[in-house]
Amino acid sequence: MAEQVLSRPGRRDPGRARGGSGGRPAAGPDGGPNGRFLRTLRRHLAAHGFLIGAVLCFAMFSWYPMIREIIMSFQQTHRDKITRQPKTTWAGLQNYTRIIHDPTFAQAWKNTVEFSLLALLIGFAVPFVTAIILNELRHARGYLRILVYLPVMLPPASALLLFQYFYDPNYGLFDHLLRMLHLPTSQFVQSSSSALVSVTVASTWMNMGGTTLIYLAALQNIPGELYEAAELDGAGILGRIRHVTIPQTRLILSMMLMLQIVGTMQLFIEPFILTNGGAGPNNSTVSVVNLIYQYAFNLSGSSNYNSASALGVLLMLVLGVFSAGYLWLSRDRD
């Protein structure tokens, strides 16, 4: 009977669902491990078939490069003095030592963390406030939603070239407006004191559309009765936001927070385009990923891919630890 039940598609063996064998015989033509494997395989064949494409893509373009990166971070490539052919050898922690001693290393991490904090202050708050305003509006909400989302449709490189023009201290739009208003002008990305903030503003403008729509969707799911009850209790706008909106969107907010931190730690294209290569004045906008790019592609010495891999592994570890910590905390809470 157990065999018949098992052979029917769509039914699960309660014993196996709990991870045990359910007292079934350990071996036999149909009941042994091979038989079970074949039956399971047959039952999930379609699912496996559909998965193959995705798994292959992940394997080729995500997992293999990750594994290769880790291996390369412990290797060095040099030209053999006798054969004149490139030779790869194990190098222990040499690549890690090498990048840690690079004077730009500490600066890149400092800039990346600073950008993440700035992005949290500007890039996290602005879309949330924008979503609240959009949610409160009675008219033209659809048009405004499109307006907010428009920058996301611009290719990042185009949007940043636009900002490069806006920021130009010679003929740029922003300084032109500041001059018209008789306000002091700024060097924006051309000055070490304002470069990172300027990068953050451009980045926020480019990316806030999507985040705003997600917040807006979350806000629209909040039952109206909660706001009515809060109003009856005498809550003003700020009170409603504090006691209804934020608690009701906590899950979305925390998820977006994690995604934003992971995203901002991988800052690359914004400084790369705005500062013509990513370093900025006094290396004020060089990020960890910019440094990886510079190691890999901009330097002519040997073993630069290995240095880039070592820095990539460090970044992966930092983000991995952060993400694991976040998941662990959020699992407990929920």
């Binding site: 060097q187 051309q190 000055s191 070490s192 290569g277 370093a279 900025g280 004045p281 006094n282 290396n283 510079q294 901009n298 330097l299 002519s300 010495g301």
Partner: peptide, 20 residues
């Protein structure tokens, strides 16, 4: 030697002189 790495380092020096 390692010309591009040297140039990259000196880009920052030039930019500081021209922007600070």
């Amino acid at each position: 030697t390692d010309a591009q790495a040297v140039y990259k380092t000196l880009d920052a020096t030039m930019l500081s002189v021209l922007q600070d």
